[in-house]
Amino acid sequence: MPKTEIIYFLPDVDAGVTSIVRNLLKYRPKSDLKYKVIFTREIERESVYIKDIFNVDEQIVFKYSKHENLYAVSKRLKSYVTSSDSILVSNDGLEMRMVQLLKMPNPLAYIIHGDFKYYYGLVNQNQGIIDQYIAYSKFTEEQLYTKIDSSNHNKVKMLYYPVPEIKSSLQTDKPTDLLFVGSFNERKGVQFLFKIYKAIQAKLPHVNFVLVGSGEMDAELKAQFSLEPNVLFKGQLNNSEVTQEMQKAKVLLFPSLSEGLPNVVVESMKAKCVPVCSDIPSGIPDLIDDKVTGYRVPIGDITLFSNSAIDLLENEESRSSIAKNAFNKAYSMFNPVKNAEHYEDLILKIEPKEKLFLNQTLGGILNQKYMPNALVTLIRKLNLSPKL
């Protein structure tokens, strides 16, 4: 009898979603299940690709072009699905489009990774084929109940994901004052970092700041900080290197505009690096009790961000107390082994029902069964109309 196969699909972009799936697989229970991970890579999209090896039996990079006929892409992707009993764990849209177009009966779980219109759009479009919704913040769980039909409410489950334990003594002599970890883009709030830093520097002239990451605003950020000798850009680091930076840092600046439940904040709590976060509804309330396990600040409030960081840097006793509280909360909520077991148990218990497939063209109008892929690709490369 063949092994039960669980296939995780996720975009080939080394970001927060990747960290969560990486840890789900890293800490999965030992069993005779067959695990597979498929990284879907749109070749026209520039990104930091996933380089490490996941804890799976098979790891695949699936490349496709945005110009191709979606039917052709879906058929190639389906070739990696062993049988109609393989359990599919979706983290994005391509694999759900495959299930829709090819009318696949496979059990399908969808992990929703944030409070974003894009993800809710996928939820709305694919209610007929999703057998299990997994949210990992209370807010996203509540939002799902408002976005899907009441008949599907029993398919929603809120589970915190696994986060590795970090061995760290409660240092008081950490060398890094301020730390940022994340993509250099507006959604992560990096446009606020220079003003926050300068406001802190006005009170604490020798404050230092380490930035970890990369992205579309890389050049702009480096230009802003070019005359600041106490600011260091570390670039893109692997997980262990990021952990080391967190262990060395006193305060994490997290001025993001929107999130799911930010893995980087959980990691900072486990590293006893106190987070100062935008008070966004999704994820942050699960983690941060204001001035108890970190600081919650209105989005874009430069003065409160800087004052909160100054309070922490100037008051070692208060910072140590908050760091300890944050560590204890994260340790309790994000147990790597137990949480990974909960995910696997839930996925294995999926009881697929008859799927209600969409009877409509997905994407451009050239996505038709009868359209040759080479012709569709050629026409779309001519860029005649976005509707194609």
Rank of each mutant, 00 (worst) to 15 (best):
T146W: 09
M104R: 06
G114F: 03
Q143V: 12
Q125E: 08
E141F: 13
Y119G: 01
N124F: 04
Y110R: 15
K138D: 06
N124K: 11
D149R: 15
L102Q: 11
Y119C: 11
D149Q: 12
I148L: 14
G114L: 05
N126D: 04
F116P: 01
L102V: 07
Q143G: 15
Q100R: 13
F139H: 06
H153S: 05
G114A: 03
Y145C: 11
A109H: 09
D131A: 10
Y136M: 06
T140Q: 04
K117W: 01
E142L: 15
P107Y: 13
P107M: 06
N106C: 14
Y136V: 02
V99N: 09
I129Y: 01
N154L: 09
K103W: 00
S151R: 14
I111E: 06
Y119H: 08
E141G: 04
I134P: 06
I148F: 10
Q127F: 02
N124V: 08
G121M: 09
H113I: 10
T140F: 04
A109K: 13
I148Q: 10
V156A: 00
G121V: 09
Y110T: 15
I130Y: 04
K147R: 15
Q132H: 05
V156C: 05
Y120D: 04
N124Q: 10
N124H: 12
D115P: 06
K138C: 07
L108F: 11
S151I: 11
I111H: 12
Q100A: 09
Y118T: 07
G114H: 04
K138V: 02
I111V: 13
D149S: 15
I129H: 05
F116V: 01
D149E: 15
S137D: 01
L102G: 11
K147V: 10
Q143A: 12
I111C: 08
V156L: 01
D115M: 01
D131T: 08
I130P: 02
P107V: 14
K103I: 00
K138M: 02
S151P: 00
Y133D: 01
Q100L: 06
N154K: 05
N126S: 05
L144I: 12
S151M: 11
P107E: 08
G128P: 03
V99F: 15
G121E: 05
L108R: 13
K117T: 06
D149C: 11
N126R: 00
S150M: 07
S151N: 12
Q132K: 09
D149M: 11
G121Q: 04
I129F: 00
G121I: 04
L101G: 06
I130E: 03
V123A: 05
K147N: 15
Q125H: 01
D131Y: 07
Q132T: 01
Y110V: 14
G128E: 00
K138P: 05
N152W: 02
